[in-house]
């Protein structure tokens, strides 16, 4: 399996001297293609920082990040914007959609920004997979929270990015909608060959992934393949008691 994103010896330090906080203390991680990767860890473990640095939303203090074969070192804001636009998809916990645009307009937004025409066949596949094909003319305030997040997923997928980054995508949803959403992400990986990296603190959510990476104190401390909820829970307990 090839790596779609990679961080080598990633260090992220906030502040200087005595007050310096090491959010990432030398992280090496490879995100594999067509895999659903979850990043877990307690609050303050650096998991969100890892995602943000890996996604090119934030700079590393030292170390390197490569996304879709492009090194992010010294890259211009313009190139980075293009990279995000073409190769990366994002799903946030909330505030994912432009409130004035319809669901369809929101989904094709990254393409519209780039002034590309959407691939209609791919678009239909995505919205049908996500079950929002009949909500396309609605504006976000007319959709439920779950539907809004599914629109966000569709938007992340529509430009066929090499990788999608999701930050607690089900964090704001009730458990039923949350399960549905995670199911869709799983399906996107299985049937549409999408690569996804997700940050979560919820073992249940992480159990949808192919691989779970555990972070503590800015370092990767453990990794699970083919996780189950119980295994994750146990791992967390073990890490917590250390």
């Amino acid at each position: 399996m090839s790596a779609v994103a990679e961080m080598v010896n990633g260090v992220k330090t906030y502040g200087m001297g005595d007050t310096a906080v090491h959010a990432l203390g030398g992280v090496d991680i490879q995100i594999d293609d067509k895999q659903f990767t979850a990043i877990m860890g307690p609050s303050g473990s650096g998991k969100s920082t890892l995602l943000q640095c890996l996604a090119g939303l934030d700079d590393l203090t030292s170390g390197s990040v490569t996304i879709a074969g492009v090194s992010l070192q010294g890259i211009s804001d313009k190139r980075l914007t293009l990279l995000r636009r073409e190769n990366v998809g994002f799903i946030f916990q909330a505030f994912n959609l432009v409130p004035t645009l319809t669901a369809r307009e929101n989904i094709v937004l990254p393409l519209s920004i780039a002034r590309h025409k959407p691939d209609e066949q791919w678009f239909s596949t995505v919205v049908e997979t996500l079950g929002i094909h009949d909500r396309l003319t609605h504006i976000p305030s007319e959709l439920s929270g779950g539907q809004q997040q599914r629109v966000a997923v569709a938007r992340a997928m529509v430009s066929k990015p090499e990788i999608i980054f999701a930050d607690e995508p089900s964090g704001n949803l009730d458990s039923k909608s949350g399960d549905e959403l995670l199911g869709f992400l799983r399906q996107a990986v299985d049937t549409l060959d999408q690569s996804i990296v997700m940050v979560t603190h919820d073992p249940h959510a992480a159990s949808f992934a192919d691989r779970v990476v555990f972070l503590d104190d800015g370092k990767i401390v453990h990794e699970l393949k083919k996780p189950t909820e119980t295994k994750i829970f146990d791992t967390l307990k073990k890490l917590g008691s250390k």
């Binding site: 804001d77 995000r84 636009r85 994002f90 409130p99 937004l109 920004i113």
Partner: peptide, 16 residues
């Protein structure tokens, strides 16, 4: 602010 941040994240350039 958040909306603009989101748009930047999904690929809106500064000039846009």
């Amino acid at each position: 602010t958040r909306e603009i941040g989101m748009l930047r994240a999904i690929g809106l350039s500064r000039s846009q």
